[in-house]
Nucleic acid binder design. Structure first.
Lengths: 153, 153
DNA sequence: TATTGTTATACTCTATAACTATA
DNA sequence: TATAGTTATAGAGTATAACAATA
């Protein structure tokens, strides 16, 4: 419908107006957009294989190797052998990786000044409204980790 | 405030969930993100200098040269001499560039399916709310062109 | 001399293809 | 033989520095 288009264009316009700020926030941590996407997928306790990372990032396997190399050089992630399949390498966040990931999430999630400056009434209306948006993964995905999950598919 | 943060994070999360779709829409037109940003800045009747383009895209002047080269090869833009300063080259959209720009805007502005599928009541509430967002340039900026503007600053 | 844009060059990120080691 | 990951290589995109033309 036409209303959906209006809503989407407003959201897109507002995001584009602040896009530069989010890019800068990531760069300030010395991370590239690719690193950012990788960190969102990784955790200390949920090992991911290289193949899973490549799939999640929708990139080539060789590119995943390259990206994980860079993250490993910075000490943010660690490659580990797979318990049963010696072809597979799994990747987990290091303690420093956890810290940087949290810094990244904090920086990205900080609202723009012009939004903070809005009336309380407007903010309440906005908050009620955005909760009507279709379900989507929370941007600060706190690693949904079911208790019993095998290490790697 | 905390409410502003919640609102921002919901908007960000919703956008991220559909980010891939927008990238694909641009790629389908054979455009890179850099081209996309360039087209947003260009128009048929509002010549921009190379320097202005580099500034608007927050990139190096040499990179602007490179990007305009690519757009010119595709016939979407045209370099023209500046009327008074022969050092300056100005860039305008060609007729074909206008068409492709409009296709890009249409593709980007098409709302996600899950938004279109929402109840009419929810959509009305969302539309009313997003209009409360702080002022920002409309994403499909229809080339704000004051009648009397000198060609290039 | 200062400024505009380009060219020369190098570095980052991404992909395809060939390769190594397991299974 | 097939699969997981890496390495070799090439290309797009970005930046810095040197350069040419013009102011």
């Amino acid at each position: 419908t036409e209303m959906a288009r209006e809503v989407w264009q407003e959201v897109l316009g507002y995001f584009f107006a602040h896009r530069e700020r989010t890019v800068e926030a990531v760069q300030a941590l010395g991370l590239t957009p690719g690193h950012m996407k990788s960190l969102f997928e990784l955790d200390p306790d949920d090992p991911r294989s290289m193949g899973e990372i490549a799939e999640a990032l929708a990139c080539d396997a060789s590119n995943a190797t390259w990206m994980v190399d860079r993250l490993e050089e910075r000490g943010l992630v660690e490659r580990r052998p797979h318990p049963t399949d010696r072809r597979v390498k799994t990747v987990v966040l290091t303690p420093e990786g956890v810290i940087v990931k949290q810094q990244m999430i904090d920086a990205l999630g900080r609202p723009p000044d012009d939004l903070v400056a809005l009336d309380r009434a407007h903010l309440e209306a906005l908050r009620a409204a955005v909760r009507l948006l279709p379900a989507h993964p929370p941007f600060s995905a706190p690693s949904p980790r079911p208790i019993s999950k095998r290490a790697v598919s």
